[in-house]
């Protein structure tokens, strides 16, 4: 993916480590290894809605 701040192309699996500042530290944000800018992964509900809308569009 491409970082929205610095434009760095990176593999999502090579994300920067999490900051562990918040409670639980189970944060799944994708952080650019070059600048640390955070991108959010699609929430599961959102992905399901998008898939459903795409399916509806295809059927139409």
């Amino acid at each position: 993916m491409k970082c929205a701040l610095c434009g760095y192309d990176f593999d999502e699996t090579k994300r920067l480590e999490i900051c562990q500042g918040c409670l639980g530290s189970g944060c799944k944000k994708i952080r650019c290894p070059n600048c640390g800018y955070e991108t959010l992964p699609d929430p599961e509900i959102g992905s399901k809605i998008m898939k459903f809308l795409k399916k509806l569009k295809k059927e139409a």
């Binding site: 900051c19 600048c35 640390g36 955070e38």
Partner: peptide
């Protein structure tokens, strides 16, 4: 500039990025 811009999102992550 990068940690400062990140700080507008969340100060915790931005503080971590100051290591760069």
């Amino acid at each position: 500039v990068i940690p400062m811009v990140l700080g507008l999102g969340c100060g915790s992550m931005a503080t971590m990025v100051t290591r760069t």
